[in-house]
Design a protein around this nucleic acid. Structure first.
Lengths: 244, 244
DNA sequence: CTTCATTGTATCAAAAAGATACAATGAAGC
DNA sequence: GCTTCATTGTATCTTTTTGATACAATGAAG
C-alpha cells in the first residue's frame, strides 16, 4: 500500500513539529438532551483516545488546536478553551505507541518522534453537534460521539484529562456563558435547562432556571415552536450576548 | 573567570532539558498591606523578567515549577497553580536572549538551546512574604519584590503573563481560599481584608467582609493583638480549613 | 368539550449581600 | 483619673438573590 508507505514516512520522522508538546481536546456536543464527547479509536486496537495532535514549528498554539479540531469536525472557529497542562513524566507509554502504530503496519524506530516525552495541553471544545461531521485521522478507523456516561477506557491519562475538563466546565459555567456554544441557533428553554443539568450533574428547578436565564438579558425570544405534542408550545430563544 | 566558563558550558548546551517548554512564575507576596511580585533583573541589562526555568527530562512538570521557585525563594511546598499556557509563535526574541547572555559574557552559538521556540506554562505562586528569601539566579543580579503598581516593563510577554495571572486570581479568589497562602500564620481581619481588596482592586465594606469571612467557618480566633495604637485591639486569626 | 402534560409567570419564604448604626476598647492627651 | 479618638466587633435594617410552590394558559388527544 503506497498509503502506508507515506504514513510510515510521515510518522517516523516529524521534524517540522514542535518537540515535547501535544494538544488533546475534550470535544463536547449536545444531542437528544445528552452531552456527547468525540473520541477516536485506533485501527486494529482497543485503544480509544481524545482527538489530539502536535504543533507545527511556526504555528501559534491556539491555531494548532483549531486546526486539529477542524480536521476532526470540519468546523472552523470553534469555541476552544485551555484548561490544564498534563505534564507528569510517566504519562507516556512507549508500548502503547508501538501497538497503535503496529495496528497501522508501521514499525517505530527507536528514535521515533512519538517515543519522546510529551506534555499535553488540554483544551475543551464546545461544538454545535448538528454542524460537526466527525472524521477519523490516518491512524484511527472511527471518530464518533459517545455519551458521557459511556466513555470507554482511554489511552494514557485521557480519562483524567476528560475529568478535569468537565470539572473546569462546571466551575466556569456561569462565568463564561459556555453553554450556548453547544446549542444550535435557536433552542427552547427546556433544552437549555437540560444542557445545564447535564453539565452540572444535578436537577434544577424549572421555574427558577427560566427566571435566571431571562434575567441575564442575553436571550431573545423568537416565535413559538409547535412540537405537535399535546401540550403548550414552548418559545424558541436565540442567544444575543456579546460576552465571548 | 572560571565561573563564567562553567556558565558558558551550561547555557550553551542543555541536553538534559525538555525541549520547547518553559515555566514562568507569577510569584506574589503580601507585605505592609501591599501585594508584591518577585522579579529578576538580568545582569548588565535593563531586562526584567518573571522567575522561570525549564523542565528536566524526567521531571514532572509540577516538580519543575516547585524546584524553580525553591531556587528563587528558599521555600518548599509552595502553593502553585497553573493558569495558562502562552504559546504564540512570536513571543520569543532572539536578540533579547543574546543581549541577556552578552550581559553575562556568554556568546550564544546559533544552535543554542535558548534560540529554539518555547511555549511557556504560567504558574502563579502565593507565598508567605515573611518566610521567603529571594535570591537571583546565575544570569541576574537581583531578585526583588515589586509593588504591583510599579512593575517595570518585562521581557517578552511577561507583562501579559502577569496580567492573566491576576485576572485568574480574581475569578478564583472565592473558589479556592487562595488568600490565606499569602498571609503569615496569624493575621488580623484588617490584614485579610486589605489583601482581598488589593487582589480584587476594589474597596469592601468592613463589617460585611468580617461577617462573610467568619461565616466560612475556616478561621480560628486567637488572642488579641496589642498594637499599641490608640484604639481597640483587633483579634488575631488563624486559618484552620482543610480545603486545599 | 374534557383531559392532560407542559409552559410561562406570579407569589411567598429563606438566604445572602449591602448599608448603617452603635457599643466596646486601648491608648493618648490633658 | 477623665475625656477623646480611631478602630473593632456586632447588631439591625434593607435590598437582592435564591429556593419552593402555586396557578392560569395552551395545544393537541380522546
Amino acid at each position: 500500500m503506497t498509503k502506508n508507505i507515506d504514513l510510515k514516512e510521515y510518522w517516523e520522522n516529524k521534524p517540522q513539529l514542535l518537540p515535547s508538546v501535544s494538544i488533546d481536546c475534550v470535544t463536547l456536543g449536545f444531542h437528544n438532551n445528552q452531552l456527547k464527547i468525540l473520541l477516536l479509536k485506533y485501527k486494529n486496537t482497543d485503544y480509544y483516545a481524545l482527538p489530539g495532535g502536535f504543533i507545527n514549528l511556526n504555528e501559534d498554539l491556539e491555531d494548532a488546536a483549531q486546526r486539529i479540531l477542524e480536521e476532526r469536525t470540519g468546523l472552523r472557529n470553534i469555541y476552544l478553551e485551555q484548561f490544564h497542562v498534563f505534564g507528569s513524566n510517566n504519562r507516556r507509554n512507549d508500548d502503547t505507541h508501538r501497538e497503535i502504530m503496529a495496528g497501522c503496519d508501521i514499525e517505530m524506530k527507536p528514535n521515533n518522534f512519538l517515543l519522546n516525552r510529551f506534555i499535553s495541553i488540554g483544551y475543551y471544545a464546545l461544538i454545535d453537534f448538528t454542524k460537526a461531521t466527525p472524521s477519523p485521522d490516518e491512524l484511527s478507523d472511527s471518530c464518533m460521539w459517545y455519551d458521557l456516561d459511556k466513555i470507554p477506557t482511554l489511552m494514557f491519562d485521557h480519562n483524567e484529562i476528560f475529568r478535569k475538563a468537565l470539572e473546569t466546565l462546571r466551575t466556569m459555567l456561569d462565568e463564561k456563558l459556555i453553554g450556548f456554544n453547544l446549542l444550535p441557533e435557536t433552542f427552547t428553554m427546556n433544552e437549555l435547562q437540560n444542557l445545564y443539568e447535564t453539565i452540572l450533574g444535578e436537577k434544577l428547578v424549572r421555574s427558577n432556571f427560566q427566571r435566571k436565564m431571562l434575567s441575564l438579558g442575553i436571550l431573545e425570544r423568537i416565535e413559538k415552536k409547535m412540537t405537535g405534542a399535546a401540550n403548550k408550545a414552548p418559545y424558541l430563544y436565540r442567544f444575543v450576548g456579546e460576552a465571548y
